[in-house]
C-alpha cells in the first residue's frame, strides 16, 4: 500500500510522465481511502489552473528610454 508521500508525489509525476499500471492502481487505491490525499489531488489541479493563467502572458517589464539609449551604445562597443 502506498503512503501519502508517495501518492502525492505520483500525482505530480503523472503530469510529466505516464505512470506504470502498478503506480496508477496504487494511486487510485490510496486515493479511494485517504481524504487528505483526495484533497491534495483537487488542490493540485486548482493550483495548476492558477499557474497556467499566471503564465499565459508574460508580466510586462520595460526598459526606460534612457536605459534603451544606454543599451544601444553599450552593446556595440
Amino acid at each position: 500500500m502506498k503512503n501519502c508521500e508517495d501518492t502525492t508525489q505520483d500525482i505530480e509525476r503523472s503530469s510529466f510522465v505516464r505512470l506504470s499500471l502498478k503506480d496508477r492502481v496504487g494511486m487510485r487505491m490510496h486515493l479511494s481511502l485517504c481524504k487528505d490525499c483526495r484533497r491534495y489531488f483537487k488542490d493540485s489541479k486548482a493550483i495548476d489552473r492558477l499557474l497556467k493563467k499566471r503564465f499565459t502572458h508574460l508580466s510586462k517589464y520595460s526598459f526606460t528610454k534612457e536605459e534603451k539609449e544606454d543599451l544601444k551604445r553599450k552593446i556595440v562597443s
Binding site: L58, S59, Y61, F63, L71, K72
Partner: peptide, 26 residues
C-alpha cells in the same frame, strides 16, 4: 543594435523576469 533593442528589449526583459526576481540582473 538600434532595432534589436527597440523591437526585442522589453520582450526579453519580461521573459527574463518570468524566471528571475532581480530586475538589475535581468
Amino acid at each position: 543594435p538600434e532595432l534589436l533593442v527597440e523591437n526585442h528589449g522589453d520582450y526579453l526583459l519580461s521573459f527574463a523576469m518570468s524566471k528571475l526576481r532581480d530586475l538589475d540582473l535581468a
